[in-house]
Nucleic acid binder design. Structure first.
Lengths: 344, 344
DNA sequence: CCGGCGAATGTAAGCGCTTGCCACTGGCGG
DNA sequence: CCGCCAGTGGCAAGCGCTTACATTCGCCGG
């Protein structure tokens, strides 16, 4: 065909007005069954495809929800995207992905926020770190927001209880008899400011504290959320006099830590117990004890929350806390006897 | 402010016409420096943000390139997205991600193709499997396409030499003295039709053939591209009488295979040599010998290729073949003595 | 048999921007 | 001193759709 059909062509072919075509095609009321049928047929025959930009301009809605993540190529965020994408695809909505990696990108993201509200109808924000003022600005804005991984109290959120999860992980290590437990985390000292990291650190300290222990500075290291980051942190720990167990706030880091341990001639779990966080498929394969969190389900729920807001739900802010589960595997399957116990 | 500023507001504030504002803001010629400055200031003062939908409708361009991938939550495709996103972000273009998982989604993708050409200016297609006819239709269409991982000859493409890479991998195994080498692949029998999988299988057979060996049916299994898929395939292989070495067409599968081996009491590399494909970070951590391919660089190049087409490049189709490298690690670090050699 | 009412449809005014085309301006050579 | 040209800038017609409002029509109760 020469030129793409427009709504007007469909209208004249069906013998109705463009308004009727628009209504019929979108399933709106006030169209008789017969007319609708006629329109559908005409559209079919012309292979009509509505122009989304025209529709969006006219309707003032974009049919798109934005998803902001710090990086794309990590298991966690890839699954966030997958979770959101799955629900959006069902609703025939577009996903606009925004990568906010590091301070510069955050700057740009913030600067682009006003413009963003024109291109997305809703927003799923994942592990974003911004000044409080901006969160409030966002809350005052027109686009519904759901956050995953962070809970500001201002928006619908879906998180896990990071503190409790970390307590469980470290508690497990303590139950095994460890007293010299390292933490491989992330934070201002590490790659980025990350709320989850801070909470897991808090949980670690809480678990330790409950047994009268603390987290000595030399066992408290931070790295980037990656295999390499975990390895480096572990190497650092080893250089300082290795702990007998280490809690890593991501599986990638834990795998890096196991690697470093091996390089240093430490056996896991005999010489070093390791626990990770996430429970990605690889964790099970390598026998890594880790905290399972339902990543893509969380993301999907966040997506549903913004969709509900788009459908007019104006109930109170919903703050979902999803369950986690400590998966015990080989990397901690060894009872550690501390010198104290050995002599008692 | 009450209502978002529109171009007209900027125009009147700057004392020029909307046409001039449009030109000034987009850096088009035929605007004097003084005028441009005036416009910029006015826009700044009003915090003006152009409405992308209006711009796209009027201009007939979408400022968006689409990226189709089979799944989001795998290392490979996550890196593809990351690679594309990085170059698009630089050009201030949007990325529209399309997940084409399985036949149904492919169907939908194909059905949506005509509509798609209105919402994207270009397309990066990754490991997509479609009837030839549709590729040709696409080639006849208005939107430039670049493929990654598959080379149809119709579009700019960036691939690796899968056959040669597999030959190198299996050749390495042969050099180590293995003669009973299994292949864990994917294909019509596996999860999806995948061109790379077919080519790697071909390379495997070629390498074997060069030594006068063949790939017996009982050592030729297929699984899904995942840890679980690799594990199941390996278990199957073990059930049939384990080979002494196995080539897996992805790292996830290789890690699954190592897991299965361990479950079965086989030591890697002594009892079973394993080689994977991709060289994702975890591979190095677990000492997996594997074929490295520059995933995100490939994706970035594909993105550049479609951008070049958008800039009017109408040169001949470019078919880039990127280098791969066999990374030898612990999982194959053992010279296997076949009975034949042992007795000679 | 008539007024009125609601459902079905049409009319047309935008939505906010881009761009082809025309009009103006001032500096320059003739 | 005049006409011409290149460089600027304005005008206005779209881009293809949505939707408020007006209109039409069939049907019912009075």
């Amino acid at each position: 065909m020469s030129r793409a059909a427009k709504i007007e062509d469909v209208a004249s072919r069906a013998g109705v007005s463009v308004a009727t075509v628009s209504r019929a095609l979108r399933g709106l009321p006030h169209v008789s069954a017969a007319t609708r049928e006629k329109v559908l047929r005409a559209a079919e025959e012309l292979d009509y495809r509505p122009n989304p930009h025209a529709a969006r301009l006219a309707a003032g809605r974009s049919g798109t929800v934005g998803v902001a993540v710090p990086v794309l190529n990590s298991w966690f965020y890839a699954n966030v995207l997958a979770g959101v994408e799955a629900v959006l695809a069902e609703e025939a909505l577009d996903m606009h992905v925004i990568v906010v990696d590091g301070p510069d990108a955050t700057e740009r993201f913030i600067a682009g926020l006003p413009a963003l509200s024109k291109r997305v109808d809703g927003l799923v924000l994942c592990d974003l770190f911004m000044p409080d003022q901006l969160w409030e600005d966002l809350a005052g804005g027109p686009v519904p927001v759901a956050t995953v991984g962070v809970d500001t109290g201002l928006f619908d959120s879906v998180t896990i209880d990071n503190v409790a999860a970390a307590e469980a992980a470290v508690g497990h290590l303590l139950d095994l008899g460890h007293t010299r437990i390292g933490l491989i985390g992330a934070g201002p000292d590490g790659a980025t400011d990350n709320e989850s990291a801070a909470l897991r650190r808090r949980g670690t300290i809480a678990a330790l504290g409950r047994r009268g222990l603390d987290l000595p500075a030399d066992l408290d290291v931070a790295g980037s959320f990656s295999v390499a980051g975990g390895r480096e942190a572990m190497l650092e720990l080893i250089g300082r006099g290795a702990p007998t167990a280490v809690f890593c706030i991501s599986d990638e880091m834990a795998i890096g830590a196991m690697w470093a341990a091996e390089e240093a001639g430490l056996r896991v779990p005999e010489d070093l117990a390791v626990v990770g966080f996430d429970d990605q498929p690889v964790a099970e394969a390598v026998g890594l004890t880790t905290v399972r969190q339902p990543v893509s389900i969380m993301a999907a729920r966040a997506a549903h929350l913004v969709l509900a807001r788009l459908d007019g739900d104006d109930g109170p802010v919903q703050r979902h806390v999803m369950p986690t589960l400590l998966q015990k595997r080989k990397s901690t399957d060894f009872r550690h006897l501390t010198p104290v116990h050995a002599h008692s």
